[in-house]
Design a protein around this nucleic acid. Sequence first.
RNA 1: GCGUCGGUGGUAGAGUGGUCAAUUACAACAGGCUGUAAACCUGUCGCCCAUUGGGCUACGUUGGUUCGAAUCCAACCCGGCGCA
Length: 422
Amino acid sequence: MSAISFKIEAHEGTARAGVLTTSHGVIHTPAFAPVGTKASVKGISPEQLLSLGAEVVLANTYHLYLQPSEKIVQKAGGLGKFMGWTGPTITDSGGFQVFSLGVAFGKTISKFVKKTIEEEVEMKPAIYDEDIASQHGQLAVIDEEGVTFTSHLDGSLHRFTPERSVEIQHALGADLFFAFDECTSPTASYEYQREAIERTHRWALRSLNAHRHNIDANQKQAIFGIVQGGRHEDLRRESAREIASMGFDGIGIGGSFSKEDMRGALQAAMSELPEEMPKHFLGIGEPGDILEGIANGIDLFDCVAATRIGRHGSIYTRHGIIHLTGEKYKNDFNPLDSLSLPKSDFGLRSSDIRKSGGLTSTERFTLAYVAHLIRSKEMLGSIVCSMHNLGFILTLVAGARLAIIDGRFDEYRANFVRDYYG
RNA sequence: GCGUCGGUGGUAGAGUGGUCAAUUACAACAGGCUGUAAACCUGUCGCCCAUUGGGCUACGUUGGUUCGAAUCCAACCCGGCGCA
């Protein structure tokens, strides 16, 4: 008996619309989960998230473990209660930090890279060694059993294993959480990618076993396994088959990509996954990438981009991203909502608007005003832009859902992409 | 009026004979950000060509010393402070 249930309601090609039911409420899929890494979607209150149409929030194991510690979140009654969010919650396992604090630390590599360059990746030391870690300029070092971290907050040493990650995630108490994985660099060699997925598979099994041994958590929380494999389609297929066969409640598609490799890797993984399982595309994404994911059967997304670029003064518009720090916005007195997605054009009926990006009062601010807020580093500027961007993505995804139900998703996507990237 | 300290690029403020078109910060301009080391980071920032590079004009003004001056000297202009 799984802690969640997933029902697919409509199909259009490989795209589908469904309902994911958790003990904290339902998620209408495809859905986008705003990221609140440290139990806070930066600058946005739970009420505001609801008003924007969010149904689920994702937080991070590594960050909450370091601060304030999973014990405090547990005492508060779990992640949702702690942060004042009554809806469904998700936690990531800390697997992404293996990457971002590991091989990617101090480099230009992130979730996405400009282009894929093959380069030799040195084998990681089997035992954590501070000198070796600092030589590599890393805060995380991997071995077979797990990962040793240096806290980015105070430099203290910590260790995650699959069992420990699951234990922490049980304490955090999200409705849905992920197995501990290794997110690899796209610059890693094929040999390393293979070694890494095999390790990720062993960690997945260990994560699942740790979960199965906690009867209480089993009834309340669902666990998703993560498919890796870099940009190599054979590794992606192999990883998908392996992870799908283990008995997880759902699947996450992980990894760091270059733009041109994402689609192939995604499709390779999706081709091997059972239709009935809910699937989460981890860390995605930009509007076009989300639509690509939806077209290929992804049900859940999460991404920091909306809030991060918003906080830094960039906003989504129907015709692409604009930077409000640009000189031309100093004298632009059009309202921010003139750049929002028009709800009706995106298939949203008035009955849908409440849960899919209803117009908030901040949307009536002029661009000149918001640009001034950003320039003068007023926190309201970051908040308004973050809200605008979350509203934009949530509306886009809600519109996609309705389009699938109506059987016009292809057209919906084509229209959006034409305007946004054209 | 006398004395004294000071006048540097959009701003603040380093530099006190060559390595200075001038540290740094801020501002400005442009860009980046995809399971948040991120209210952050990068680039440009006197003018004109150029690919490395080169030319020109600049540190209050004018003149001088010197192979060479933002830096030393003189006069003048302007500002702060003190004394009359």
